[in-house]
Structures are given as structure tokens and as C-alpha cells.
């Protein structure tokens, strides 16, 4: 936080860069997660997937550090007195998404579930929708800081992709339970599908809160 000791405008610019960096970290972790799981489906737990997993853990640590620094700076510098609660609430929700991304990739590494090839397309579709929900949440968060009126445009997309992820997830789980796999494997695969769906759910909840924050900020 040494950089914060300077002219007010320089401090503001530094903090602005920190918030942008935090949002970049969430976005990059999402991309790494999507690429890692897609790679896992195709080739199993390879070095490339391991590399993505390591990256996601690094992003999660970086996100924690950034969020903590931003929160401390906002309070000690008495910045955004009117909206500090909303900003920290938003960053907290995004940080929680980073935690879940890390947990999901760690559990994938631990359990290494064997998805039958006929399920791959469905899982990939669901994964795409869930990650798009996160991406739209990050975009809506960027809008909140610069142009809250446009946050609403992203909000309806968040809902759309969350619904897509949920519906595809239900179809995949139906296919899992319709298969000849042993019950233990069915439950393991279902658990993995639900983990991906949980990501979309949490991003959707963050989007709902963000929509309220944006209304509060509108002039």
C-alpha cells in the first residue's frame, strides 16, 4: 500500500488500476478454468491441465490480496463513503467466485471423474454457458464502475446464460442417470456437473446484487 501515499488523484488512479486488475484476474481465472476442464474432458489430467490448475490457484491468491488491499485503502482513505459497502460487497462476491473456481479445479484433480464420451458435448456446452455467466458478471462489474446504466444490458445476459447452464446441466444429469454406469460413478459425475452449475448460480446471484447497486448509483 506504499503507493497509496501520494497525491489524491495518483492514489485514486492506483486504486482504480487495482480494481481493474482484480476484475482481470477473475476473467483470466474463468478462461483458465474453461480451457482446463475442456482439456481434461478431451485428454484427461495432463501437464497442460495441471498448468491451468496452478494458474487458477495463483489467480485466487492474487484476487485475495487485491481485494484485501482495495478494502483497506477504501476505508483508510475514506473513499466512496456513499458506495463503499456496495463496492466491497461486489468484490467479495467476485472473490467468492474465484474460491469456487479453485475448489472445482482442485476437486477435479482429486476425483478425476471419467466422463463417458457421449456426455462430453453436453458438459462442454454447460461449461461454456457457466463461464459465459461469469464473464458477463465481470463485464457488468466493469460497467458498474464506469457506466452503471449499461450494467442492466449485461444483467439480462447473466440470467440467460445461467438458465442455459442450468438446463444443460439437467440434461447432462439425466443422461448420466440413464446410462449403465455404476451408481457411485453416477453420483461422482453428478457432483462434478453440479459444481459447474453452482458457479453459474453464484455469478447470477452476484449479478442480481450488482443490478441493485447500479440502480443506487444511477443519477
Amino acid at each position: 500500500m506504499a503507493e497509496l501515499k501520494g497525491a489524491p488523484l495518483r492514489r485514486t488512479r492506483f486504486l482504480q488500476a487495482q480494481i481493474d486488475e482484480f476484475l482481470d484476474v477473475v476473467s483470466q481465472a474463468t478462461l483458465a478454468y474453461e480451457a482446463g476442464v475442456a482439456d481434461y474432458l478431451q485428454h484427461g489430467w495432463t501437464d497442460a491441465v495441471e498448468e491451468k490448475s496452478t494458474k487458477i490457484r495463483e489467480y485466487e491468491n492474487q484476487g485475495d490480496r487485491l481485494r484485501s488491499g482495495i478494502g483497506t485503502a477504501l476505508y483508510t482513505e475514506m473513499l466512496l463513503p456513499d458506495t463503499v459497502g456496495d463496492v466491497l460487497g461486489l468484490l467479495g462476491a467476485l472473490d467468492h467466485l474465484l474460491d469456487v473456481l479453485k475448489t472445482n479445479i482442485v476437486m477435479l484433480r482429486v476425483e478425476r471423474p471419467a466422463f463417458p464420451p457421449e456426455l462430453h458435448a453436453g458438459v462442454r456446452e454447460m461449461l461454456r454457458a457457466a463461464c459465459e455467466t461469469l464473464e458477463q458478471t465481470v463485464l457488468a462489474s466493469r460497467s458498474y464502475f464506469r457506466d452503471p446504466a449499461t450494467a442492466r444490458d449485461h444483467h439480462h445476459k447473466i440470467h440467460f446464460y445461467e438458465n442455459e447452464a442450468e438446463n444443460t446441466g439437467v440434461r447432462v444429469m439425466e443422461a448420466i442417470y440413464a446410462s449403465e454406469l455404476p451408481l457411485a460413478e453416477k453420483r461422482q459425475l453428478r457432483e462434478q456437473v453440479m459444481r459447474i452449475d453452482r458457479l453459474a448460480d453464484m455469478a447470477d446471484d452476484a449479478g442480481d446484487e450488482l443490478a441493485i447497486y447500479a440502480v443506487k448509483r444511477s443519477l
Binding site: P8, T12, L80, F145, R146
Partner: peptide, 20 residues
């Protein structure tokens, strides 16, 4: 208020800059 709203909509300042 109209002028402020117009200026904010055109320049789209970051929340922190607007605060300053």
C-alpha cells in the same frame, strides 16, 4: 442536475474519479 447528468453520461468517469 441536468448538466451533471449529461457530463457524467458523456465522460463516463470511473466511480473513484467521480468521487474525487
Amino acid at each position: 442536475y441536468h448538466l451533471v447528468r449529461f457530463a457524467v453520461r458523456v465522460t463516463k468517469p470511473h466511480l473513484l474519479i467521480l468521487d474525487q
